[in-house]
Design a protein around this nucleic acid. Structure first.
Length: 594
RNA sequence: GCCCAGAUGGCGCAACGGUAGCGCAACCGAUUUGUAAUCGGUAGGUUAGGGGUUCGAUUCCCCUUCUGGGCUCCA
């Protein structure tokens, strides 16, 4: 064994991220030290730093409890006070195998480490197989808190045993830790599941089934506005909307390849009179049938077929969540049939520009593009056709660069039939979700033998671009609820205005004001309850209604209303005609009002 | 699907193994109010469902369903 300790490390000289990673990784060692003390039989997995802290995976003789967490936290703090030095040492394979003879996961890790690269780290009485990256001693690990216990597969594969993972958060100072806990609190407040319940936007009821969303009137209003808008945008850009059935013969999906590659994610087959039907998980085959309904000349391409239709995907039970991960979803989908690569490029570019426009209007900023590539080694998951993949990937990369969008590449994330561009965003709770994808598909045109008549009269095979823009209505609305914290811009607000009569004698005038607004398709409620004005204002604020119009004697005399904007700003009394003009302008420009 | 934790009026919560209570909301009445909660009253629960232990189960055990946190998978 040889000592390979780094010279004493000046933490302050390191970039913050590096410093935090060292603190977090060191804390994971301290956690493992505590765990081994709590349960000497513990088998150790790995303990890396993560975005807000660290985790360590263990296989334990019994499930951990919250009391264990408290104990471990306390024990870790003791170790911190001990100011134990983290000491690295290089060891031989023989030494390592002996030391971790009873640690199957460490032995598994050892297999992947070259003989001359095996190192261990010791602090206090605890030694772990480790490649390094620590602080000097345990007193330098910062402010941490053990947060939760979770299950996690060894090496992330469901074929491996399930371990118990302990998550901790860790920051340099107690203040930063407190700020992070505040953030978690804020995220809870933004959670679309909570806001959806509070504002009666949607409901999920046990009897209807997990992942089957009920859109309540308020939520359905938001959805309808989005739907009208995106369909109009698509019409402007030459898309043609179709309506195709949600059920089709199983055979259709056999031909498309979905049955082979996607069966597990489909609802079970329905059988009657010897025929097998399935609920569609995607509508590509249906749109292909639309294309095949006529002969097409090159002059008609690109042909853009769009549909906002229900898709049905059997998400695994542990995966369904609120409205962001459902089993029946309404997908904003289109298939663009292109004559050649040049058309594919310009169409993909058009889609990317449409996305930028749409997300800009919605005020979404926290998203990123991912170029999702296939994996030539995985012929099980992906259609086996290397030149096809090559061509698609190059093309998508080029277009992303040309449009000037930042993106990153990810291997093994493609659709089974081709590479794609994914747009990813973060939910309030920090989870990454895919919003939409753009895919280049050479596969389905071949499967269905698609053809068009080329300029020279010969038959040629089109290429399909699959694309979404506003994702599924479910996921987009979930995202928007969290983005706006329930306070939707005027054009999307389920109730845009509440008119508050000060006393009962003002109700007729309040109705009059409401009618004037409704004549311009504004969504208005009159709050005629026998409550005090203040209570009505409060309720409207809690419902996040954009405008409250207070009407009393003064307003009734002058055909006016006192305008109170969401958030409490008093705009004073305005003539009703001016209010209408102001609200129409705000609505029609889709102003974010922030 | 897997690991762990949960499930109590519409919502948020309480109840040493002794047949469920509070706040808000709802409903009724009084009040008629000038920019975030008027007062009083009434009603509402087979404690997710099923089984078991017990003289007795919201409470303990088992199964199912659903929810949450993760893992894996995905729009």
């Amino acid at each position: 064994m040889s000592d390979i300790n780094e010279p004493r490390l000046d933490l302050k000289s390191l970039p913050k991220e590096e410093r935090l990673n060292r603190m977090r990784h060191s804390a994971a060692h301290v956690l493992a030290e505590a765990m081994v003390e709590l349960m000497p039989e513990a088998e150790l997995g790995i303990g890396p730093p993560i975005e807000t802290g660290f985790y360590y995976d263990f296989r334990l003789p019994r499930p951990l409890t919250n009391e264990d967490l408290v104990w471990l936290d306390k024990r870790m703090n003791q170790s911190r006070k001990g100011k134990h030095r983290f000491q690295m040492a290089a060891i031989s394979r023989a030494e390592a195998e002996e030391r971790w003879a009873k640690q199957p996961f460490k032995l598994d890790l050892l297999k992947d480490i070259p003989d001359d690269g095996i190192t261990q780290c010791t602090h206090a009485a605890f030694t772990d197989l480790c490649r390094g990256g620590h602080v000097n001693h345990t007193a330098e690990i910062g402010a941490f808190k053990l947060m939760s216990i979770a299950g996690a597969y060894w090496r992330g594969s469901e074929k491996n045993p399930m371990l118990q993972r302990v998550y901790g958060v860790l920051f340099e100072t107690a203040e930063e830790l407190a700020a992070h806990e505040q953030q978690i609190e804020d995220a809870r407040r933004r959670d679309h599941r909570k806001i959806g319940r509070d504002l009666d936007l949607f409901a999920l009821v046990d009897e209807i089934g997990p992942g089957h969303v009920i859109w309540l009137p308020a939520g359905a209003t938001i959805r309808r506005e989005l739907q009208r808008w995106i369909e109009d945008l698509e019409i402007d850009r030459g898309y043609q909307h179709v309506i195709t059935p949600v059920v089709a013969k199983r055979e259709l999906y056999v031909q498309s390849g979905h049955w082979d590659h996607y069966r597990e994610a489909m609802y079970p087959v329905m059988e009657r009179e010897g025929e097998e039907y399935v609920l569609r998980p995607m509508n590509c085959p249906s749109h292909i049938k639309v294309f095949q309904n006529d002969q097409h000349s090159y002059r008609e391409l690109p042909l853009r077929i769009a549909e906002l239709g229900n898709m049905h995907r059997w998400e695994k039970s542990g995966q369904v969540s609120g409205m962001s991960r459902v089993r029946i979803m309404t997908l904003n989908d289109a298939h663009i049939f292109c004559a050649d690569i040049a058309q594919v490029e310009s169409e993909v570019e058009g889609v990317l520009r449409l996305m930028e426009e749409v997300y800009g209007i919605l005020g979404l900023k926290d998203y990123r593009y991912r170029l999702s590539l296939g994996d030539p080694d995985d012929t099980e998951k992906y259609v086996d056709n290397p030149p096809m993949w090559e061509a698609g990937e190059t093309l998508l990369r080029d277009v992303l660069q040309r449009v000037g969008l930042e993106f990153y590449e990810a291997k093994g994330e493609a659709a089974f039939y081709g590479p794609k561009i994914d747009v990813e965003f973060k939910t309030a709770s920090g989870k990454e979700e895919t919003l939409v994808t753009v895919q280049v598909d050479f596969h389905l045109p071949a499967q269905f033998g698609l053809e068009y008549i080329a300029e020279d009269g010969a038959r040629a095979r089109p290429i399909i671009v699959h694309r979404g823009v506003i994702s599924t209505m479910e996921r987009m609305v979930a995202l928007l609820i969290e983005e706006y914290e329930g306070a939707f811009p005027l054009w999307l607000s389920p109730t845009q205005v509440v008119v508050v009569p000060i006393a009962d004698r003002h109700i007729p005038y309040a109705e009059e004001v409401a009618a004037a607004l409704k004549a311009h398709r504004l969504r208005v409620d009159v709050d005629a309850r026998g409550e005090r004005m203040n209570a009505k204002i409060r309720d409207a604020q809690l419902r996040k209604v954009p405008y409250v119009l207070v009407v009393g004697d003064r307003e009734a005399e002058t055909q006016a209303a006192a305008v109170r904007a969401r958030g409490g700003k008093d705009l004073g009394a305005m003539p009703v005609a001016d209010i209408v003009a102001m609200l129409r302008e705000e609505r029609d420009t889709k102003a974010l009002g922030r």
